[in-house]
Design a protein around this nucleic acid. Sequence first.
DNA 1: CCAAAAGTGTTAAAACTACACCCATGA
DNA 2: TCATGGGTGTAGTTTTAACACTTTTGG
Lengths: 229, 229
Amino acid sequence: MAQTYEYPRPALTVDVVVFALDDEDLQVMLIRRKLPPFAGQWALPGGFVRVAETLEEAAQRELQEESGLAGIFLEQLFTFSEIDRDPRERVVTVAYYALVNLAGHDVRASADAAQAAWFPVGELPELAFDHTRIVEVALQRLRGKVRYQPIGFELLPAGFTLSQMQHLYEAVLETPLDKRNFRKKVLGLGLLLRLKERQMDGRHRPAQLYRFDAQRYEKLKKRGLHFEV
Amino acid sequence: MAQTYEYPRPALTVDVVVFALDDEDLQVMLIRRKLPPFAGQWALPGGFVRVAETLEEAAQRELQEESGLAGIFLEQLFTFSEIDRDPRERVVTVAYYALVNLAGHDVRASADAAQAAWFPVGELPELAFDHTRIVEVALQRLRGKVRYQPIGFELLPAGFTLSQMQHLYEAVLETPLDKRNFRKKVLGLGLLLRLKERQMDGRHRPAQLYRFDAQRYEKLKKRGLHFEV
DNA sequence: CCAAAAGTGTTAAAACTACACCCATGA
DNA sequence: TCATGGGTGTAGTTTTAACACTTTTGG
């Protein structure tokens, strides 16, 4: 399988920052490395890109192999190319990020507990390579994006409550939001469809479930959807 | 210089979309290709990444070599990885974009006219590879970005008038803006410093020149600057 | 004195913020 | 019946959008 090229070329990898909302906290999925370099240390899921796959395919494949997560919505984040970011040789990595688990999407179950784990974004361990930096950039992007785009929508499960959605926003933005104003605004967008069912999950009034109206979203997006917190 | 690796790896290139404002129109810089594939066709400036340089360095180098433009502000756009985007072999490209020339920055002069030329974004010729797509993505990004971030500021020349700035915004957004409201908003940001000089460039009232207050911008950006058209 | 772009305020409409109580359920 | 989170409207303030005339210069 060895290959010779006329000029040396950087190796190409993908890394994925998967965010999840666990009750209150925004968490990040990490994998414990088995091999050097940084053996035993925590790192983002990721690995080398094969010549017959796109970057997104590589990211999905590595995510599946290392964490069990399959078919989630990925967004390209940034391509990192610092010369010394990998001690072995020159490696350029394309980072992706994803947001999973609003409304009962149990993410823990799909990860192989032996090597994958979730950490609150505020309490990450020391990470391999420049992965701490990558997580920072992802977080920054997520926060920036959430303010003017209804993020999370592409990847929401079928039914969620407005409170869950509000908690997502509060966790990402790290700021409390007013319940009435949040509902007014988010319903005013016309992107949510009421479901027939309601969520009865405790000793309190059941909550209305909604789903995201993807078709309408696509239409509005083309005309320059405007949305803010 | 030939090199052998254990596994085949994609080649890595950079491509740059340079936008410029020429009076009314938003233009894109293109290079006529001398070598196959697509010899004789127009393409974005760009080329292979060397192992000892970062992507940004590669982009700057290629831009300098192919167009004479040096040291301009580049922003990473997206990394394109479609399997067949290059007919020769698997090539992944990291695209950058830049915006030059508000207020008398004469861009034409720095480009080697024999191979580089400007085209209005609405009238691009057929481009090599997937470069048409890359320009589309860049344009989309520029338009999206301009609405909530004071773009262009990092790369503005020392002195510019509010009308020039407004024209930039109008060209990028392809929509007319109200002069009074634009001025109110942009001055209200507190990011512009009046210069002593005024621009006397015609038989009409001279225009006040401003420069961008980069320090203040950096401060505000950290606190989550809010800006909209 | 004419042409051309620079510069300047006000008003009505819309959007945003702050805020407090009743509702439906399970225990 | 109590605890828990779900759900709802209004009023004051701020922000936005629309709009027209005067100023300064060069020819």
